[in-house]
Design a protein around this nucleic acid. Structure first.
Lengths: 137, 137
DNA sequence: GTTATGGATGTAATAACATAACAAAATGAA
DNA sequence: TTCATTTTGTTATGTTATTACATCCATAAC
């Protein structure tokens, strides 16, 4: 977990963007959760360090972190996870266990570019698999 | 479009479920839209035929239609599309043009089951590609 | 060191999306 | 018909996310 935050500092410095205390705090909360975290959960937890936090506070920090490749949004859950391999482009594929909520991220998968519609230029992909992990079977 | 509705009637009859006028009307609205439709848009359009429609009216119909394999939810858009190949299991992969909002559905793709985590049993998958279709380039 | 500038955060309000819980009505089987 | 089940009506509320504008803060130009 310090790893993730250190990596994040490094990455942001490299890219000339600012990992402010607030953003760092949100990343810390996301990274500290095994399961995907909801924005309003972040909001209530952040509140302890920042009494002024409101929804935009959290959503802005999340937008920044996603932009920076540090956090992913889990679309079908309206929730967020820390990217374990920060900065690795964005071909991430997620395996979400519906029992324990644990998420495994697999990098680099290039799914079915084969039978894609003629001339379609893919900009970003959402690939989320839901089921049961080995431990929950 | 009559095709989709006819197919739906047939499928529901086969499966012993009821495509009521309300559900049929919602399917008709979804199928009648080239772009993915929002639930509240459906609500406001359905209103003309059913003044009593409320959010649960629409969400229940959509749940039914999804269960029946007639409609898909587009997770990253909070929107819905009619399934062009109703009843075909659910390995659907979507290509969504961010310019014209058109959606192409590709069946059967089995993306990257290769490098999936050991012992993970996939129950359902969300696969959505966002970008530009050939016409919008 | 002051001051412009842009980026970041504070703040209030509200928009957009979705469900819970219970009542009433419609359908179909016994 | 009566009963059980499914469907729809209805009210209320919960959850997720954004808009719009104000204020603050860091930095670099002067």
């Amino acid at each position: 977990m310090p790893d993730i935050l250190d990596d994040a500092e490094r990455l942001c410095a490299q890219n000339g963007v600012r990992l402010t205390p607030l953003r760092r705090r949100v990343l810390e909360l996301v990274a500290g959760s095994k399961a995907p975290v909801k924005a309003y959960d972040l909001l209530s937890r952040i509140d302890q360090s920042n009494a002024n936090a409101k929804p935009p506070t959290v959503y802005r920090a999340l937008d920044f972190l996603m932009e920076a490749g540090l956090v992913h949004r889990v679309e079908a859950l309206n929730a967020f996870i820390a990217c374990p391999q920060a900065g690795h482009g964005h071909a991430a594929m997620l395996y979400v266990c519906e029992d324990c909520a644990n998420v495994t991220e697999v990098q680099g998968a290039r799914p079915g570019q084969d039978n894609k519609p003629d001339g379609f230029a893919v900009k970003r992909s959402v690939i989320e698999h839901y089921g049961k992990c080995i431990d929950c079977r």
